[in-house]
């Protein structure tokens, strides 16, 4: 089942007042997000990630196209009860304490006082902020604000959570903690929509990603599909003999990286096994056989460079 369906969403912003020129922030973007997924939306600065999320939440309106959340058009106010949101550069009235921020936005999400009494500290504890609940947020650091924002996004126990750069300004340990929180939410069956430039993080937790560049969707798929490139395998072995190295070069068109490693492009898994047989027949020990993967980062950089 799809939680989010996006069909041909286009967004034009006026470039300058009264000039009639337009900035195309999103250009005919379509994809779906399934239930229970952690979905990552990637793209360079100004690609249109925030704009897309805002359209899905009814904060900004699309110029063309259709989108729905839980099978309801994005304009539907009541579906927002099931949705949490951590905006980028979120700001709360700075005279409030952390606890009051959660309370205020929790009430706006439709929670009763009794609900909030039960859950406010539960969520502050999850993001590691329970000791700061009664401190005014003007005394918070950037990372603390981000953690509070995450608690705010989770407070109404939503089925779908949008997070715009959730780890922005958070230290490495905090990031790990946030990743764990997100994985825990996924285990509870929640759907998470994540905007980020931190590709290594996305790679760690996302099931599927979409890549936006200058408003256009240039790639979409599972992290696995996007990062594996072709049929190249890397073999690590015990010392190769000169004879074997020669054979690998000539017969299998391998690239030998030294006495203990070579890589080889194959047509299928039979080829891989044929090489293994050949190695084993000569008494060479195999330490590992791995399919070559690009990191999401190098993949991303290649893609964006191609497009520009």
């Amino acid at each position: 089942m799809n939680v989010i369906e996006i069909n041909g969403i286009t967004k034009n912003y006026p470039a300058k007042k009264f000039s009639g020129d337009k900035i195309k922030a999103l250009d005919n973007v379509s994809f779906n997000v399934g239930s229970g997924e952690i979905f990552g939306l990637l793209g360079p600065n100004g690609a249109g990630k925030t704009t897309l999320v805002k359209i899905l939440l009814g904060i900004t309106f699309s110029s063309a196209g259709k989108a729905s959340i839980f099978d309801k058009p994005v304009a539907d106010v009541n579906t927002k009860r099931k949705v949490g949101y951590l905006p980028e550069n979120h700001q709360y009235p700075n005279y409030l304490t952390g606890e009051q921020v959660i309370d205020y936005f929790g009430r706006l999400s439709g929670l009763s006082k009794a609900d909030l009494d039960k859950t406010t500290y539960k969520y502050l504890k999850i993001v590691g902020m329970d000791e700061w609940g009664t401190t005014k947020i003007k005394k918070y650091s950037k990372g603390m604000m981000q953690r509070l924002g995450l608690a705010q996004a989770m407070i109404s126990n939503p089925d779908l959570i949008f997070l715009d750069e959730p780890t922005d300004g958070v230290d490495p340990i905090g990031r790990k903690e946030i990743r764990d929180v997100l994985l825990e939410l996924k285990n509870q069956g929640k759907t998470i929509f994540l905007n980020s430039h931190l590709l290594s993080e996305i790679e760690l937790i996302c099931d599927r990603v979409a890549i936006l560049n200058k408003g256009a969707l240039i790639k979409e798929g599972s992290v696995e599909d996007i990062t594996t490139t072709g049929n190249k395998y890397i073999f690590t072995t015990s010392d190769l003999t000169d004879e074997m190295m020669n054979k690998l070069l000539v017969e299998y068109k391998s690239t030998v990286h030294g006495r203990n490693e070579f890589s080889c492009s194959v047509n299928g898994i039979e080829d891989v096994n044929r090489i293994i047989d050949c190695l084993r027949a000569s008494g060479i020990l195999i330490h590992g056989v791995n399919r070559e993967k690009n990191s999401l980062e190098s993949m991303f950089i290649n893609l964006i460079e191609q497009k520009n």
């Binding site: 805002k54 979120h90 009235p93």
Partner: peptide
């Protein structure tokens, strides 16, 4: 209407 606040407000179930 300040940026960062109105976004959040509009994401809540209030028309």
């Amino acid at each position: 209407l300040k940026k960062g606040h109105i976004d959040l407000l509009l994401s809540k179930p209030i028309s």
